[in-house]
Simulated assay, not measured.
Amino acid sequence: MRNLKPNAPLVAAALGGTPSRPPVWFMRQAGRSLPEYKRVREGIGMLDSCFMPELLAEITLQPVRRHDVDAAILFSDIVVPLKAAGVGVDIVAGRGPVMDHPVRTVADVEALPILDADVPQVRQGIEIINAELTQAQALIGFVGAPFTLASYLVEGGPSRNHERTKALMHSAPETWHALMRRLTPTIINFLQLQVEAGIDAMQLFDSWAGYLNEADYREFVLPYSTQILDSVAGVIPRIHFGVGTGELLGAMSEAGSEAMGVDYRVSMAAAAQRVQAKVLQGNLDPALLFAGDSAVRAAVRRIRGEVDAAGVGHIWNLGHGVLPTTDADAITRAVAIIHEEG
């Protein structure tokens, strides 16, 4: 590993060491639920804000200042590297990423640009973030997994069933693999520039992989996620997370990350039996932040017991992202409870 922050609890835990306190960060902690986020983003589009260094740094740092979490997660979006490469995409409020032109044929794949240049706005944002973070606070880089990006491209936007994506996989597998080979360098290049700029760890997000069965995941996704994680092997700690991926945890862990994220549908005890990774991340139900401190404390004690019994390392997180209507003070209290009990 490169010269990382030895006093950062998240880095210590991710590398299998003993952290100075239970490390905790929350997916989607940067934005959504924070009133200060809504103020600074007013009148500014989501994708635009990801390319404004001072703004993306401010949003990334807001939850660290407010909640005392042990890591910042780079404010970004899964489609940022596509936008940076020149793909026509926008994030439509209330819907999500929408493509100008879906990618469904060999010609579409061949026309898809590859990110092969710097993204100076992101690099500058990381430099601003690191100027404020302490040696005990890690910065986690953000990259979307190739299946999730491919699904947005094939469907043309968000999908409930991913039917066009699955149809392409099975009716034209050569086109599917060509698309994945086209996307993987873009993701790797976006990750590498974050590493060069100074991130301390990374998480590979696969938002939609949970819609696949294990056989399809292994054939159509795993080789490419492995290639992405391999690109920073031995450089920074790697976390791999997917939504609704309980049945895929074993296969996903074969991609090689030091830590595996676990969503709230799977117990930590079950996850520990399924994965190769020696560190787990998760898996407090985000809805419990609406249930009061006693419910959060009980869940934290239960999860801690499962992790201790399994004998694995642990990074605290939610089993998915912070819900938009979550009270910011409830998040702060949950972090304090985890630091006390976890």
Rank of each mutant, 00 (worst) to 15 (best):
S49Y: 02
M169Q: 09
G16H: 04
G86T: 14
A295K: 14
A295W: 13
I303G: 03
A8L: 03
L4S: 07
P286G: 00
G282V: 01
V300R: 00
F290H: 03
D77S: 15
G17Y: 01
G86V: 12
E219Q: 15
V143N: 10
S49P: 09
V87Q: 06
G144T: 08
S151C: 15
Q273V: 13
R297T: 13
A93H: 15
A57V: 15
L112N: 07
P185D: 15
D327K: 08
D327V: 08
E54V: 13
G342V: 00
K166H: 08
E155T: 09
G198K: 00
S267V: 01
Y264K: 11
I331V: 15
T18M: 13
R39W: 04
G261M: 03
A14D: 06
Y152E: 07
E54Y: 08
F205T: 05
A259V: 07
H170K: 12
A298H: 05
E254R: 05
I236G: 00
K166G: 14
T60H: 02
S294Q: 13
A295M: 10
R333A: 06
V11G: 04
L288D: 00
Y264A: 08
W316S: 10
G234D: 11
H314N: 11
F220G: 01
A215N: 14
V307S: 00
P223G: 13
G157P: 06
T325Q: 13
G342W: 00
V106L: 09
I337D: 00
V106K: 10
K166V: 14
G250E: 07
D285W: 03
V80P: 02
H314L: 05
V103F: 08
V275S: 00
D70Q: 02
A167V: 13
V143H: 03
I239V: 13
Y224E: 05
F220C: 04
P22T: 10
F190T: 13
R39G: 09
M1C: 14
E42R: 10
A136T: 15
L284K: 02
T325M: 14
M202P: 06
E36T: 07
G234P: 01
V92F: 06
I331L: 07
G86K: 15
L133N: 04
Q135F: 14
V79N: 02
R302A: 13
V232K: 07
L204A: 10
G210P: 02
V322S: 01
N3R: 09
D48W: 08
V64W: 02
G88C: 10
F205N: 13
D48E: 15
A209R: 03
G242L: 06
R39M: 14
R238Q: 15
Q137D: 10
G246K: 04
T60P: 03
A295Q: 11
V92E: 11
F51T: 11
H240G: 08
R301D: 14
Q281I: 03
S225R: 03
T134R: 09
I91V: 15
V119Y: 01
L15C: 11
S257R: 06
D68Y: 12
R181L: 08
R32K: 08
P120Y: 07
R218N: 02
